[in-house]
Amino acid sequence: MRKPTQPTPFIQTAKPDISYPCQWEYLVIGTDEQRLTEIIVTACAPMAPIIGRSKSSSGGRYCSLKAVLEVDSEQMRLEIFTRISEHPDVKMVI
C-alpha cells in the first residue's frame, strides 16, 4: 500500500521584480461595501485610490472592492496592505 503524499506548499524563493513608482491594485474582501470603501480611503491617505466594485458572493454575504493607486516604493505598498488587512472589518486582501 502506498503512503499518500502531502502537497508541497508554495514557497516564494525570490522577491518579485517591481519597478517603482507603479500602479498597484488591492482586492479587498469584506461584508459591507461602504465600510470597505472607508477603510481603503483611510489606509491610502493622503493618496486618493480609484475604488471600484469587483464581485459579490452569490448569497450576498461578501463583497470585494478593487482599489488602484500609484505607490512610490515597496515600503509604501506594504504599509497600505498592512493597514487594510489589519482592520477587523476586512476578511482578506489580495
Score class of each variant (00 low, 15 high):
Ser73Val: 03
Tyr20His: 07
Ile50Tyr: 08
Glu38Cys: 13
Glu74Pro: 02
Pro88Tyr: 06
Ile80Trp: 01
Phe81Asn: 05
Ile94Thr: 15
Cys44Pro: 01
Ile80Ala: 02
Met47Cys: 06
Ile94Asn: 14
Pro46Glu: 10
Arg53Lys: 11
Thr8Gln: 13
Phe81Thr: 02
Ile51Glu: 03
Ile51Ser: 02
Pro9Gln: 12
Leu65Pro: 00
Tyr20Asp: 07
Ser54Gln: 14
Ser19Glu: 12
Phe10Pro: 02
Gln75Arg: 13
Val68Thr: 13
Trp24Arg: 01
Cys44Trp: 00
Arg53Phe: 04
Ala43Lys: 00
Thr13Asp: 09
Glu86Ala: 07
Thr31Ile: 06
Ser58Cys: 05
Thr13Cys: 07
Asp89Arg: 12
Asp17Asn: 08
Ser73Gly: 04
Val71Ser: 00
Val93Cys: 03
Leu27Glu: 13
Ile94Phe: 15
Glu86Thr: 14
Ser54His: 15
Glu38Trp: 09
Gln12Gly: 07
Thr82Asp: 15
Tyr20Lys: 04
Tyr26Glu: 00
Thr31Ala: 09
Thr8Leu: 12
Lys91Met: 11
Gly30Phe: 00
Ser54Tyr: 09
Val71Pro: 00
Gly30Trp: 00
Lys91Tyr: 08
Glu38Asp: 15
Pro7His: 05
Met92Asn: 12
Gln75Gly: 11
Ser56Pro: 02
Val28Cys: 04
Pro21Ala: 09
Leu65Ala: 02
Thr5Val: 10
Asp72Phe: 10
Gly59Met: 08
Met92Gln: 14
Val68Leu: 10
Gly60Thr: 06
Tyr20Leu: 06
Cys63Leu: 07
Leu27Val: 12
Ile80Val: 14
Gly60Leu: 06
Pro21Asn: 11
Trp24Ala: 04
Arg83Gly: 02
Asp89Thr: 10
Cys44Asp: 01
Glu25Asp: 15
Cys63Glu: 01
Cys63His: 01
Gly60Ile: 04
Gly59Thr: 10
Pro49Glu: 03
Ile29Thr: 12
Lys91Ile: 10
Met47Leu: 10
Thr13Glu: 12
Pro46Thr: 08
Ala14Gly: 05
Arg53Ser: 10
Glu33Ala: 14
Glu25Arg: 15
Trp24Ser: 02
Ile29Ser: 03
Ser73Phe: 04
Leu65Tyr: 02
Gly60Lys: 06
Ser57Arg: 12
Phe81Glu: 04
Lys66Asp: 04
Pro16Asp: 05
Tyr26Arg: 01
Leu69Gln: 05
Glu79Lys: 10
Met92Trp: 12
Val41Gln: 09
